[in-house]
Design a protein around this nucleic acid. Structure first.
Lengths: 270, 270
DNA sequence: CTTCAATGTGGCAAAATGTCACAATGATTT
DNA sequence: AAATCATTGTGACATTTTGCCACATTGAAG
């Protein structure tokens, strides 16, 4: 577990409770102890939208991956760092969507009660009930790229179904629902869903993603027409092979076309 | 000027530098001294989009209205409080749009240098160079409702033209441009522009607002058709009188119609 | 009384969308 | 090897929306 020591007080970020073997002492000068970042990492699996969750202790409910901001980095850098620590991923489209600042959203006594610490210890730690504000980020990640690699990724990690979230600590359920809202909004300005797909993908695969994330079925013909009219995907010569039935064309996201589309002021409404 | 005293250090929020007559001592327990709120209050005047700015000292550049968050309020409450303090306005559509967390965005030494304090005093205050993160809010306000009332509203306050901003301190120019972007995005989800108009308004008045904020001319016929198709404005029997030429119809925002439109998932794309 | 500019409205072509049918395709089954 | 079958590409067609513009209306200003 990583403690942060400052002015004879101990600070612990909830996401770091899982590693009981190491105790590191940090100086206050390195961290902003009342500003943290929480990452809502979304993916699509089994035809459902899922979010990456951690349970550092058994039966204490899940947490979003998060951590303190270091004094020499901004929130974006902290989110990128945390995303990398938790998943090994880099160069992911990561977007800040809201700050969560309810005075009661977090307190150390609540945390320690949740993880079942002794009562007398809790009372001793009561002085720690400082406020923590969290800045929320969301990202779309390809689950296949995380699952097998490991790294910091442990058994206490799971993909939670957005529609049926497990028990979450603090306001993390709120953070998740706000992240999903923000993602759906973002889709009108940036067609970021290709982040969930391999470099080359088919139109039905892309449509499937949109349907899952928007939560409604879409017409095949209209969808294809619309995507092609945006003129940000380029059709390749190849077709996906090894599949039954008619082989679909492969497409690729074209960054140059995308930037020119943005300059034209195109909107990516579905 | 209001100083915040804590652990033998002095904290000053830049927006409170203007009032030199009173010195209040606050306890740390009442305030989050490294989390502040900045409000981008936008209005339309002289056919231009403008932002409310303050200059607490002569020739030090302008600041956005802002302040610390109190320990028992969340950021929304702080923004509402600050908006009220600066303008006397209540019940304004106020929206959080981003947190600004660049480590170098703010420091007390920079502040004191900007306002021309003595060098030896600055060095003494160097220990104050703590980081401040700011949460940005924007609101649309009716300039007529503020200008005459006064209150905290003083001569050091001005409406800055978005296209030609005066010199601003810290990253406040960035905050403003981000706020305008956020407003333009928000228009696709909520037709909030009626906040800038009296309760009863005409279609050309509304169109004029859209044109100024989006920065491009719109066709009269198409605009009218689109607004009416949204079915959130109701046409009244009256027409605006006292104007030259044909008298335009008056419309009113209908909150019930609006909520049903939202439930239908309507988008307010222009 | 005339002028003039702003407004309400409708026409028309072009573009976009919803709906659906049909052909093509290739693994799977028989 | 042939038939089956679900998936994909594509185009037809009606409907809706949009862009563009002209025309009539209106009421203050000249």
């Amino acid at each position: 577990m990583i403690f942060y020591l400052w002015k004879n007080k101990i600070y612990i970020h909830p996401m770091e409770l899982k590693d009981l073997r190491s105790i590191s002492i940090w100086k206050k000068e390195k961290l902003e102890l009342n500003i943290s970042v929480d990452c809502v990492l979304l993916t699509v699996r089994d035809k459902k939208l899922k979010v990456l969750l951690n349970m550092p202790f058994p039966e204490v409910g899940y947490f979003l991956p998060g951590g303190f901001i270091m004094t020499d980095e901004d929130a974006d850098a902290a989110a990128i760092r945390i995303l990398h620590q938790r998943t090994g991923l880099d160069h992911i489209y990561l977007k800040q969507f809201r700050a969560f600042s309810d005075p009661g959203r977090f307190s150390y006594p609540t945390l320690f009660r949740n993880i079942g610490w002794e009562k007398h210890l809790m009372e001793e730690l009561h002085t720690l009930s400082e406020r923590m504000i969290s800045i929320g980020y969301f990202a779309l990640v390809n689950a296949e790229l995380i699952q097998p690699t490991g790294g910091d990724f442990q058994e206490s990690t799971t993909w939670g179904d957005i529609e049926h979230l497990p028990e979450l600590n603090f306001d993390h359920e709120l953070i998740i629902t706000e992240a999903v809202d923000a993602l759906r909004r973002e889709l009108y300005f940036r067609p970021v869903l290709y982040n969930l797909l391999p470099e080359k993908f088919t139109m039905p695969e892309l449509q499937n993603l949109y349907e899952i994330i928007l939560g409604k079925p879409l017409d095949r013909g209209s969808f294809q027409r619309k995507m092609l009219r945006w003129d940000v995907f380029e059709r390749l010569e190849e077709r996906r092979s090894g599949v039954a039935h008619k082989r679909p064309f492969l497409y690729r996201f074209n960054k140059e076309k995308y930037t020119t589309a943005l300059q034209k002021g195109i909107h990516f409404a579905i």
